[in-house]
Amino acid sequence: MTSSARLAALSVVVAIGAVAAYAFLLRVAAVRNHPEGYVVAFALATALAALAVIRAPARRWPAWLALGPSSLLLVGGAWFNFVVAQVPVTPTALRVGERPPDFTLPDAAGRQVSLADFRGKKPVVLVFYRGYW
């Protein structure tokens, strides 16, 4: 195997490895909370593929085959992480030491649930989530 082909193969392994690692380890907080990690991995894969192209003697197609997808992953991943996934920071009604606004909402069984129901009874963990992937 030429050094170019080896670099191209390594590039593919890094790119696929990054996607697989992020997908399978999503439940691990240390992985999930550092999504920039996959962008860095894609940058590495792209650099390796670029190196493969430069080092290619005659047949360059394995190197281009690695450079195409890895640079796409890099652009797509960076766009998603640094643009799409950004949530604007605006003032909230949350203050440590104060009560947040009360609310009454229906649960999955149709019962009305109020935050005030739990006062004097139980601590509450409120988890606001998007509802869309």
Partner: peptide, 27 residues
């Protein structure tokens, strides 16, 4: 859509801890 956030309230309904993320992939 909602901004993802986690709030911990004590038994009196007072906020003791909260976290609002700047990147919706991060919880």
């Amino acid at each position: 859509v909602p901004r993802p956030a986690t709030v911990v309230l004590d038994r009196e309904g007072v906020v003791r801890w909260f976290s609002v993320s700047r990147n919706f992939q991060v919880r």
